[in-house]
Design a protein around this nucleic acid. Sequence first.
DNA 1: CGAACCGGGTTCTGCCATCAGA
DNA 2: TCTGATGGCAGAACCCGGTTCG
Length: 383
Amino acid sequence: MAAVPAVRALHGLHQSFVLQQSFRLVSLQLTSTCLSRRLCSAANGPKLPQNPENESLLENLNLMGVDIRTAHQRQPGVFRRLFTNEKVLAQFLKEKGASCKVIASIVSRFPRSITRSLDHLEQRWQLWRNVFSTDAEIISILERSPESFFRSSDNENLQKNIAFLMSLSLSSKVFHRLMTKAPRTFSNSVALNKQKVELLEDICLQLGGKNPQQFAKTIITKNIYVLIMSDKRIQSNVDTLKDFLKLSDSALLDLLEGRGAYILDLSSEYLKRNLKTFEQKMFLLGCDDDEIKKMITKYPEVLDFGPTTLNAKLDCLLNGGITIKQILEKPKVLDFRVQIIAERLEQLQTVGYDLKQNGIHILDSSQKRFLEKMNKLSAFNRK
DNA sequence: CGAACCGGGTTCTGCCATCAGA
DNA sequence: TCTGATGGCAGAACCCGGTTCG
């Protein structure tokens, strides 16, 4: 991971950006004008009330290998524009190392990308390059999610966002991850991001926390997706956990700052539904309210399993001779997928491993560790 | 030394609704 | 009335290994 000296690089960003802007404006305007004369497509005649589609644009997109049907379906308005920059965009991305196939895919999925000017593209790219050390990293994000890069035309907002998110003093590693894995965060308006951070701080204060800034930082560090989730969802999930678990404020705060942060971004209805089915299943298995709550507090990720997955895992363990009590004590054995749990149970049986006596912790180990253990057990059996 | 604890890494877009401005 | 910009939504687990404990 080229985690880039993001912090360092971005420190001087503001000053250099202002300077760059005034300098670049002159040179880029020239380039842009020249390029646009040569490369922009233009429809015949002025804009008509019927908004006819731009023929030369269609031709260009076809040549580029763009999936016109998809593009048309997604943003039909683009096709009626008099001026578009598809050739400029293609050239620009090509210079950054994107293949023709990737460019076609980007335009197919987010046609509005072809409305951006060269000047705009260069500014935006530069802002991203202050976080990433190579063009290739940015291209791979663009390929994955063209919308994240292109949806907003507001470079100033992007710059402000970077500055704001930097001000949260996230580690450079986390910042890099945020921009790589949740690039949408950076096309939110700064106001929205601020509002989301404030929400996290408020939740902390409501629960009697003393350091709201640190709390927000911890939550974002553990779950980089919280900033692209609605306030409604985050608040609802906090409320759901609070209502169900009936924890003290400080215990809930601990939970959220710990593993609980990972389930904050779940769809709130999904979380509620899983909570309900989990509760029902555990009641059926003879657990009481207290045990169920303890298990969730210990291992909140259990709420990330849909009913099918949850039941399959529990049944697999129970059929393998493990008691529900053992699972309550060590819920992390549910971490691995059913297939692995089943395979391990079978392997353990062949070497005569006594799960009742030795405990079930062995199921919660990496493949490497499990294999090592199995080898030892087999060797021991041969003696 | 092995067991147990603990936390970290991966992963998240593509579509829809709404609103403001042209 | 059309378009672009923006916010929000659904969807849904798994694996690894460092460190501490006994």
